[in-house]
Design a binder for these strands. Structure first.
Lengths: 339, 339
DNA sequence: GTGAAAGCGCTAACAC
DNA sequence: GTGTTAGCGCTTTCAC
């Protein structure tokens, strides 16, 4: 038989208010009474009903992580998983729960869940953010945090990696290993992340007044096949070996590039060093393993969750933050004999 | 200003009961009244408070998907993502929401969320199921559904792929392409899935009274590196070419195997056909692309969700089901010239 | 320090 | 058909 706060109260010969106090602000209750109540709670294995509690308190404890999941999403973007993990970790520590919401460009569900008080706040993957959703959030003061918007102008709160810095680090590294004649194989032109990283690369060389003779930017889709094709195609019109490094916007492209270089009989890293961004798990599985500017998506998720909790408590704060420094992980694809 | 059912009632000059009826069983209300109420609801953009609703009804609409997420989990087991997607899809269609729960061998959170009425049911990934959790579920009649338990003796409800059939299909296929002298590179010995698939392979050959001269079972870890090493090691004591096919328990192993065969100068599929189970996205990215007995994890998730909803409505039904037939997808790693 | 009582926003008998 | 009323299980004033 399910116990309620009333049963406990009756059993202890106190009022329900006292039991409630023991639950919520135990030190307002005399120690002796408190202990009696606590014992009864233990004895009857009483757990207060969360729905009733939230209703009475006028608050909730559920956050939604809004994103889309393509069938092979786990492979295309393992980051979402890590982000999710980070979010979950922090939320749990703060007594919040994480709900998963998939949106297909329709924000009805989001509105409903917010308005019917099921969800107290939203963490939104930038790729799932429409302008309609942005407008709704702003107009209705919806507690939110967007993951990944750094170069868009917006009044929303967000956290993101410092992709510009990622680019700079990649360039700095190539400079250090003296392989500055690069090919940059980028994702789609309009991709924010890509634009920033590319800018980081260019700015580094500019500011250093480096005389980079040969460099080339090539756009391609972020897949193994397209990475492969792009390089093979380039090799038809250019002498690949006049470059001595390739920066791949992403791990998939890099896998394709390694394969193409193999077929073109170009030695990695001797002839050409290959480096990439994002350290997907399979970056270490390639032949040779990939040097990569790695970002910590787990951290990103944790940060987002923390800020969202802040924002729920203080809806008017604005958050726009870059988090955690990227880290360059050197592996064989760029590891040269040098003293 | 937040509207409640009372505001709507007052505005329409009806009782709150009537408004509630319009919300819950509209056809018990006279059309004219109903329309008046509906209009007011629209006018004030009224959305009933779900917490109050659930409290009054004594039910909830949140389901938890219980699993663990390793940092590179998305890569190691992309299936969890697909399962999750399938679950979410069905739940949403039935008005349920999906909460994500990570467990680290501690079931406290699960107990709490069940007992405090936050969660109405659990879908549990078999790998996260401890005997303690199993016991708790059974003793407390917790609505649940386990994904993937097919060969364990248990009183829990579960759905799973027919892994035995997967094994049979693999064997049947090798028979068909006349490459019956197989090496079976399996995951850990104790892995349920693996045991069943292996049994499927053996039974097929047994029942067909096929005279398979050379075959060999090798245990290895489900990683690229271990797949590679196992085969290289085997090649030191055996003439690999007396086998004409390799069955890999999983895509990671298969990638390692392809790499090893390449280094051993064995041609795939001419000398040895390679097939594997589970069609991870990168199965098509290997060289050559992998033939695979594919299972539909999205479907598995959908089925689990459907059954869980049944179980919530009828806690005493028991569910033990194999779902969707595996499908053999033939790719170059086993594609022989034949008429 | 503790209790009585009025909510939180809704549903569901039970009347009429 | 519709209204009255008593909950759902908890929190929180406001007295004492």
């Amino acid at each position: 038989m399910e116990k309620t706060i009333r049963d406990i109260a009756k059993y202890c010969k106190v009022s329900t208010a006292t039991v409630s106090r023991v639950l919520n602000s135990p030190f307002e209750v005399k120690e002796e009474t408190r202990n009696r109540v606590l014992e009864a709670i233990k004895k009857f294995n009483f757990v207060p009903n969360n729905k009733a509690r939230n209703l009475a308190k006028g608050k909730g404890n559920i956050i939604a992580y809004v994103t889309s999941f393509e069938p092979d999403g786990a492979f295309k973007n393992p980051h979402k998983f890590e982000i999710m993990s980070g979010i979950q970790k922090v939320l749990e520590a703060h007594g919040y729960l994480m709900l998963l919401l998939q949106v297909n460009n329709n924000i009805k569900m989001i509105k409903l869940l917010f308005e019917n008080k099921t969800i107290s706040g939203f963490i939104i993957h930038a790729s799932s953010l429409t302008s309609e959703l942005e407008k709704y959030i702003l107009q209705n003061n919806v507690p939110h945090l967007v993951i990944g918007m750094s170069n868009k102008k917006t009044d929303l709160s967000w956290v993101d990696n410092n992709n510009y810095l990622c680019g700079k680090m990649a360039a700095e590294y190539l400079h250090k290993i003296k392989h500055e004649n690069f090919i940059y194989l980028g994702g789609e032109e309009e991709d924010n992340t890509n634009i920033l990283r590319r800018k980081g690369v260019l700015d580094y060389f500019d500011k250093k007044f480096l005389d980079v003779k040969n460099y080339k930017f090539v756009n391609t889709h972020a897949t193994i096949q397209d990475g492969y094709k792009s390089l093979i195609k380039l090799a038809k019109t250019e002498d690949i070996k006049k470059f001595n490094s390739i920066i791949c916007a992403n791990n998939h492209i890099a896998v394709g590039v390694l394969r193409a270089l193999n077929d073109l009989n170009v030695k990695v890293p001797k002839d050409i060093a290959v480096i990439t961004f994002d350290d997907y798990p399979f970056a270490t599985y390639t032949k040779p393993p990939l040097t990569s500017v790695s970002i910590n998506m787990y951290q990103l998720g944790m940060t987002a969750a923390r800020f969202l909790i802040d924002k729920i408590n203080e809806p008017n704060i604005e958050i726009r933050t870059y988090i955690t420094l990227p880290r360059l992980i050197e592996r064989e694809s760029s590891l040269l004999e040098r003293k």
